[in-house]
């Protein structure tokens, strides 16, 4: 088991192999994310019941929660890829980390924006300096920092190293975002989804939410693979196999 994992890990380190295998995966991920997102959106907007207190404005949860979950997952993945790049000097890992950053920043922005739109009618304020909201804003700035560092150096390697270290340091923020609503008094309500407990809302509300979350993950997978493939082609353009790809067409 471990051995096959190690073998797979080393093969993934080869840009050509990564390019080939993700080329085969992308259509599956793209179709899955399109189906899940369309089904989830229709279900969430048309069929899921409204909330007894908030009415229809509750439905923004179906964008807000998936985006917030993705924002944190992507940051974690980016930091892990950065660590692999630092320790094993794996170029593909650096490219994955680089491709993660703009997607994660967009997700963070979507979470903050939908949160503000949701906060105005329910709480009565667009923005409150509460621990959850502030930690999420810091996450957005960390993403900006990582993106800026990646292009701040002449050599791609130094940029990758610096941004990997920043993302590893920034990973400390992830548990703070997650537990902020438990550690401190906040205006933000506690988590909608937890791994250990059943959601507090009925199935007809949380099943479409789960569909949206999985759809967002598939969408992220598709975009990440597409971006990484572009990055691979860009950096490996002088190699035989990329030249071969070009001459074939």
């Amino acid at each position: 088991m471990w051995k096959t994992f190690v073998a797979w890990f080393h093969r993934m380190g080869s840009p050509k192999w990564f390019y080939d295998i993700t080329g085969r995966w992308i259509p599956w991920f793209a179709v899955a994310s399109a189906l899940l997102l369309i089904a989830g959106t229709v279900w969430a907007l048309a069929f899921a019941p409204e909330d007894y207190q908030q009415g229809n404005s509750f439905r923004i949860i179906y964008i807000h929660v998936p985006a917030a979950i993705l924002a944190q997952s992507i940051f974690f993945l980016m930091a892990m890829a950065g660590a692999v790049g630092l320790i094993w000097k794996m170029k593909v890992a650096d490219m994955v980390a680089k491709s993660c950053a703009p997607i994660g920043a967009s997700m963070t922005f979507i979470a903050l924006f939908t949160g503000a739109v949701w906060g105005k009618p329910t709480w009565g304020a667009w923005w409150v300096w509460d621990a959850r909201l502030t930690a999420m804003l810091i996450l957005l700035f960390l993403y900006f920092g990582v993106i800026a560092l990646q292009s701040a150096f002449d050599s791609k390697q130094s940029g990758a190293r610096a941004s990997a270290i920043l993302s590893l340091v920034g990973v400390v923020n992830i548990p703070i975002i997650k537990y902020s609503v438990e550690w401190w008094n906040t205006l933000h309500q506690p988590a909608t989804f937890t791994l250990t407990e059943k959601p507090a809302m009925p199935a007809e509300m949380w099943v479409p939410l789960l569909v949206m979350v999985i759809g967002f993950y598939c969408f992220f997978g598709t975009i990440l693979m597409m971006r990484t493939r572009n990055e691979i082609l860009e950096r490996e353009k002088r190699t035989h196999w990329v030249q071969g790809l070009l001459s074939k067409k």
């Binding site: 007894y52 507090a200 809302m201």
Partner: peptide
């Protein structure tokens, strides 16, 4: 200024 806080126990009006 008064802000309303809500919890994560969303439910349909019929259930309530």
């Amino acid at each position: 200024e008064v802000l309303a806080k809500h919890d994560e126990n969303y439910m349909p009006p019929e259930v309530e």
